[in-house]
Design a protein around this nucleic acid. Structure first.
Length: 818
RNA sequence: GCCGAGGUGGUGGAAUGGUAGACACACGGGACUCAAAAUCCCGCGAUAGCAAUAUCAUGAGGGUUCAAGUCCCUCCCUCGGCACCA
């Protein structure tokens, strides 16, 4: 081997190996241990390029992928682009540059950056959600759901800005105002497409009879961060309660109320319906204060959901004069209010007001001077002036008096059932998924409207419905696709008469809800993926991405998986078996990195200055993968120094392959390092794996000569972390094949055990002495040596030893008397 | 308010209930050099001491244990998510 003195020049060697990998692909040993699918959440290719958070995420999975390949697995590790979305469209509105052009530019830049840090993706599987080859299958997914009754249309509210003539995404509404014009945002009703995600909350069966776990129960069988599981659960928001029918006095109408506290119903002193409630229309004639109610509805219309749901805000409402509801339990008549603290979209859109036992009802009753009636007490609390929201024992509740709240809920629900006035009911917070967007840069919804035939799905053979290029994307109030002549020139697939296309596009979350399936077979033109390929690679074994996707993306992806599984397109019902989130990388000043604060660290600059391997190592060394971390430019140099040391080690390698064996101490340390690095990579504890490699390198540096075997083993252990330098040094040892075709080393337990162990002697809980003794010494021997130790004798002289605990090769703990 | 994750030197962090502070950055001292950079060596939680060493120390306070950063209880603080969900 050459031992000429050269300096580590990352720029040169990184370029060299990247060129090689681009030309011949990333070297992969043939996997014999079976498949592993290691996936990153694919990025939106923004104009800002890769940020250091991406680098953290992608480096972590790259280490895992390289490590698993060297351990004999057939690893699928693909990358693609979540390329539809608002930023490119807004950029187009501002500059006139077409979103397609801009998006392709951004992708090119992202890919360049990824290659510049040596990520070993299967680039031949690259996908782009904005390409017709991909969105053809997004449209196919829509039709699949449509045909199975899982996609439907209904009226729904959208954020509407009158000044911009456009629909806004929730993120564009700041404090109830448009983020661009500053105008107040209205809620406007529009016909929208929905996916029936709520159909999959509970377990179901596939058409072939297999059990498909629901969105709720499925959480039990996956290895995800507990916070993410909790967030999913909360988002689904299952609550058990009762539905109660309050007939409206002197009419045929009734108000259905949902409550989790039916046990407090004897304390109900009024009923509230949401401003959206249909009863307001059907009862209009009987309302005594129509004008006042109308005014109130006008005011609430101006509020966004965000505003309406702001806590600690005074509750407002208007009584419906002349309307009374009848409590089915007591027969009492109670007033009816309309108030916007009740949401039309949750439950039945109506609640019973029990001020004595609910905070909101209490506040509302105080404001409108409504009667407060206690119906439940706890054992130790009685007749407080505050409201009492816990369970207790019922009072003044007719035949239910004396029951505990829990019992009463059961009995009262049963009573409602027999009386046909309601009964037990399960309610979810989760709503169906609104997927329509009045936007241009998205996948067109494959539906055609015909005056004769109505709503007609585009036949599969006509897919993809291509996004037209002749579109003026300036906002005018309707979907940009309405004004595309080429797009709207269409005949009804059923009758052949002139028809028009659905002009809305799909939410970009639709595209990203199934992409992990496409990677199994990305170039298939007949199916979204061949079942054989799906069976080979899916589900995803390890999924990694930002915590900002804890709810929506993951929930939607799980929904798609379950829907496809139900119709036997898939053999599994949870897409991501194990998942982790990388912690956010904060700026040096402790704040979030953002362009406006000017504190963004550009990975390109770090690669340029210190090299890609240094950047990769630093990001992994910063701290635990899942923790939030602060970038520290000064600390990056430490990792470069480490690589410089590794580089210089080659000068110490013994010439000739069999010439030298190392000191036992170094061999022992090498085996400890193999163990530690192997186990730490498995556990994603990259920071401590790197520490251990540093310890080994520091020890090797102190030797005059090291064996080729030890040196090569070090290079293999370091290879997943720093692929360029290790590939270079490996080839310099005379190896012809890539280091990534090497087998991962195994540790020898016998070599790890040291001859001597240091025993700490604790006396009454404090360490008073330490001494070295042959590993494996018996308790009796250790005790004898310890008691002979003068430092120990200072404490034991003339005292009684009451107790003695010996931990093999570690600690001797003595408890002595006075 | 609810749910989740945390709180360890100047800094990032390490520690199957078993000698707290590995590894790294910064800092101080020294070697090499005409000088600087690079590199190498030594030191580096606090207090007292020339030192050996002693005492204190993992957000605060209790508890369990021979032994607690780690387990249990109460409280404080920080971060993340959700929030009038009936």
């Amino acid at each position: 081997m050459k031992s000429t003195k050269t300096t580590y020049n990352p720029k040169k060697i990184e370029a060299k190996w990247q060129k090689e990998w681009q030309k011949n692909g990333h070297p992969k040993a043939t996997g014999k241990k079976g498949k592993l699918y290691i996936l990153d959440m694919f990025p939106y290719p923004s104009g800002d390029g890769l940020h250091v958070g991406h680098v953290e995420n992608f480096t972590a999975t790259d280490i895992a992928a390289r490590f698993k390949r060297m351990n004999g697995y057939d690893v699928l590790h693909p990358m693609g682009w979540d390329a539809f979305g608002l930023p490119a469209e807004n950029f187009a509105i501002k500059t006139g540059i077409h979103p397609k052009k801009k998006t392709l530019e951004c992708i090119k830049n992202f890919k360049r950056q990824m290659e510049s840090i040596g990520l070993s993706y299967d680039w031949e599987r690259e996908i782009n959600t904005s390409s017709p080859e991909y969105y053809k299958w997004t449209q196919w997914m829509f039709l699949f759901l449509y045909k199975n009754g899982l996609a439907y249309k209904k009226k729904a509210k959208v954020n509407w800005c009158e000044a911009c003539h456009t629909v806004l995404a929730n993120e564009q509404v700041i404090d109830g105002k448009c983020d661009r014009s500053g105008d107040i945002v209205f809620q406007k009703d529009l016909e929208q497409w929905f996916f029936k995600i709520t159909d999959f909350v509970e377990d179901t069966r596939s058409k072939s009879g297999r059990k498909i776990s629901g969105l709720l129960a499925g959480l039990k069988k996956i290895d995800w961060p507990s916070s993410t599981i909790a967030a999913q659960k909360h988002w689904i928001g299952r609550s058990e309660g009762a539905e109660v029918i309050f007939p409206v006095a002197n009419t045929e109408e009734e108000i259905k109320v949902f409550t989790t506290r039916v046990d407090t119903i004897f304390g109900c002193t009024y009923v509230v319906i949401a401003p959206e409630h249909t009863l307001l229309k059907s009862l209009e004639a009987s309302i005594g204060n129509k004008e006042e109610v109308k005014k109130y509805l006008e005011v609430t219309k101006k509020k966004t959901d965000l505003e309406r749901t702001e806590l600690n805000k005074e509750k407002t409402g208007v009584e419906l004069v002349g309307i009374e509801a009848i409590n089915p339990f007591t027969g009492e008549r109670v007033p009816v209010y309309v108030a916007d603290y009740v949401l039309g979209t949750y439950g039945t859109g109506a609640v019973m007001g029990v001020p004595a036992h609910d905070e909101r009802d209490f506040a509302f009753a105080k404001k409108y001077e409504l009667f407060i009636q206690q119906s439940v007490v706890s054992v130790d609390k009685k007749n407080e002036t505050e409201c009492f929201t816990e369970d207790g024992v019922l009072i003044d509740s007719g035949e239910f008096t004396g029951m505990t709240s829990g019992d009463a809920r059961e009995k009262m629900s049963a009573w409602l059932r027999t009386e046909k006035m309601g009964g037990k009911r399960v309610q979810y917070r989760l709503r169906d998924w609104l997927i329509s967007r009045q936007r241009y840069w998205g996948a067109p919804i494959p539906i055609i409207y015909c005056d004769e035939c109505g709503e007609v799905p585009v036949p599969e053979k006509d897919l993809p419905v291509k996004l037209p290029m002749d579109v003026d994307f300036l906002p005018t109030g309707e979907s940009p696709l309405v004004r595309s002549k080429s797009f709207q020139k269409v005949k009804c697939p059923t009758c052949g008469k002139k028809a028009r296309r659905e002009a809305d596009t799909m939410d970009t979350f639709v595209c990203s809800s199934w992409y992990y399936l496409r990677f199994a077979d990305p170039n298939n033109t007949k199916k979204f993926a061949d079942p054989k390929e799906l069976a080979k690679y899916l589900p995803v074994d390890f999924y990694m991405g930002g915590a900002e996707h804890t709810v929506l993306h993951l929930l939607y992806a799980r929904f798609f998986t379950k829907a496809l599984a139900k119709y036997d397109y898939l053999h599994f019902d949870e897409p991501f078996v194990k998942m982790r989130h990388q912690g956010m990388v904060m700026a040096e000043d402790g704040r979030k990195m953002s362009k406006s604060l000017g504190n963004v660290v550009n990975p390109d600059a770090v690669v340029q200055e210190l090299g890609a391997d240094t950047l990769r190592l630093y990001e992994m060394f910063m701290g635990p993968l899942e923790d939030m971390k602060g970038w520290n430019t000064g600390s990056v140099i430490g990792l470069r120094r480490f690589l410089d040391k590794v580089w210089r080690l080659k000068e110490k390698v013994a010439q000739g392959k069999t010439q030298k064996s190392d000191q036992d101490v170094l061999t022992s340390l090498l085996h400890k390092t193999i163990k530690k690095v192997t186990e730490d990579i498995e556990d994603l504890k990259f920071n401590t794996a790197i520490s251990m490699l540093m310890i080994l390198v520091n020890a090797m540096e102190k030797e005059d000569v090291i064996s080729l075997h030890t040196y090569q083993t070090l290079l293999i252990l370091l290879a997943p972390f720093a692929p360029h330098i290790t590939e270079e040094l490996w080839s310099e040892t005379g190896e012809k094949k890539s280091i990534f075709l090497e087998k991962w080393p195994k540790w020898d337990v016998k070599k790890i055990v040291e001859e001597l162990s240091v025993i700490a002697v604790q006396i009454n809980g404090k360490v008073r002495a330490t001494f070295a003794i042959a590993t494996g010494s018996t308790e009796a021997v250790v005790k004898k040596v310890a008691l002979a130790d003068p430092k120990v004798q200072v404490y034991t002289a003339g005292k009684e030893i009451r107790k003695m605990i010996y931990i093999q090769d570690k600690i001797l703990s003595l408890v002595i008397g006075d």
